[in-house]
């Protein structure tokens, strides 16, 4: 348990540094704004206490907002995404997991289910994020295209991240 807390805290910091130093500076025609820090919410153990899931998403978003001058839109999007996570897991995995160290990955979910899981949650997060950022509905098509383009980039980055983190020695089943 102690070891896990340390491991996840390290991942929390690592993802935020990666996002703030590297991805916040990626500018693809001023359109795409990929987010990798939400990988943290995706990879938390399936059996994590629901309140802990929400609180860590809140903390994650708040740090992002402090460094990217974005009011509290990352916080709102992350909390919303964390709220939807249990439902999406139930939907794609089709069963309820009991072991609380069981975490989403290629081995536990299988490639196809994992991909669906990531795509769903990333889309929910990005749509919330981009619409909150614009805060009006007059530019709806433009916002939508930005959200979708960024989401596809984010999914690619997150799948690579999950593949790297999906070591065979993690306890599963």
């Amino acid at each position: 348990m102690q070891k896990n807390v340390f491991k996840y805290s390290l991942l929390f910091l690592l993802l935020l540094v990666l996002q703030i130093v590297l991805l916040n500076n990626i500018r693809i025609s001023g359109y795409a704004y990929p987010q990798i820090y939400i990988l943290f919410i995706l990879i938390l153990p399936v059996g994590i206490a629901p309140w802990l899931l929400l609180v860590s998403a809140f903390a994650l978003g708040l740090v992002m907002d402090m460094f990217s001058n974005s009011l509290a839109i990352h916080t709102a999007a992350s909390v919303f995404m964390a709220f939807c996570r249990p439902g999406v897991i139930k939907m794609v995995a089709g069963k309820v997991f009991s072991d609380d160290t069981y975490r989403p990955g290629f081995q536990s979910f299988g490639g196809y289910s994992l991909f669906t899981y990531v795509v769903f949650l990333v889309l929910l997060h990005h749509l919330t994020l981009f619409f909150l950022e614009v805060f009006r509905f007059t530019e709806v098509l433009h916002t939508l295209s930005r959200a979708l383009l960024s989401a596809s980039l984010s999914v690619i980055f997150i799948m690579i991240g999950l593949a790297l983190l999906d070591r065979p020695d993690t306890r599963s089943k």
């Binding site: 929400l54 609180v55 809140f58 709220f83 805060f135």
Partner: peptide
């Protein structure tokens, strides 16, 4: 219902921060 209530609380805080700051 603590999951849903906590979600409502945190989301409201985030949205308030966003809207007030607009």
């Amino acid at each position: 219902y603590h999951f849903f209530l906590l979600f409502l609380l945190l989301e409201t805080v985030a949205l308030l921060l966003t809207v007030n700051h607009q």
